[in-house]
Amino acid sequence: MAGTLDILQIQKLLPHRYPFLLVDKVVACEPGASLTALKNVTFNEPFFQGHFPSQPIMPGVLIMEALAQATALLTSQSDDKLGEGAVYYLAGIDNARFKRQVVPGDQLRLQVTYLKHKRHLWSFDCRAEVDGELAASAQIMCAVSVA
């Protein structure tokens, strides 16, 4: 399947739910190649209560989680043998870099590019941008378990 995914389609593919579902929409997907998704960051996010009350900043680990969820979505669209019962696990993060703070009102553009896979391990090059400016990047591996 190439193209877009709305939140209802995303929920069929990922087990995550509020407050941990960090992908709102897939705006482009080329199976086996790349995926672009969006995360709208609002002041209502529960993590802003403690990170930080006087200067709300999205935690970097949650930016990485959003990218990891995007890799799971690309994996799900790239292998016909994976269905709605597949579960995706974060298996590794290499070369993580944080270049810009992400604050309420920002829209994260999550871009993941397929690198390779062997059996159940998939590797991706990942970038999170805000208004065309790099916020974070990493190489992320996910593992797939089919129920």
Score class of each variant (00 low, 15 high):
residue 2 A to C: 10
residue 6 D to M: 12
residue 9 Q to H: 05
residue 15 P to W: 12
residue 16 H to K: 11
residue 18 Y to W: 07
residue 20 F to I: 10
residue 24 D to Y: 09
residue 24 D to F: 11
residue 25 K to Y: 10
residue 27 V to Y: 05
residue 29 C to F: 04
residue 30 E to L: 12
residue 34 S to C: 13
residue 34 S to I: 05
residue 38 L to Y: 03
residue 39 K to H: 00
residue 41 V to T: 02
residue 46 P to R: 09
residue 48 F to E: 00
residue 52 F to L: 13
residue 55 Q to M: 12
residue 56 P to N: 02
residue 56 P to Q: 03
residue 59 P to C: 06
residue 60 G to H: 03
residue 60 G to T: 04
residue 62 L to K: 05
residue 64 M to W: 05
residue 66 A to R: 11
residue 67 L to I: 04
residue 68 A to K: 09
residue 69 Q to T: 04
residue 70 A to L: 09
residue 76 S to I: 07
residue 81 K to Y: 14
residue 82 L to T: 06
residue 82 L to E: 01
residue 86 A to I: 08
residue 91 A to Y: 04
residue 98 F to E: 04
residue 98 F to P: 14
residue 98 F to N: 12
residue 98 F to G: 14
residue 99 K to V: 09
residue 99 K to T: 15
residue 99 K to Y: 10
residue 102 V to G: 02
residue 103 V to A: 00
residue 108 L to F: 00
residue 109 R to C: 09
residue 109 R to S: 10
residue 110 L to I: 02
residue 111 Q to D: 01
residue 115 L to R: 01
residue 117 H to C: 02
residue 125 D to C: 12
residue 127 R to W: 03
residue 128 A to S: 10
residue 128 A to R: 12
residue 129 E to Y: 04
residue 129 E to G: 08
residue 134 L to I: 05
residue 135 A to N: 06
residue 136 A to G: 08
residue 136 A to S: 07
residue 139 Q to Y: 06
residue 139 Q to F: 12
residue 141 M to Y: 09
residue 146 V to I: 12
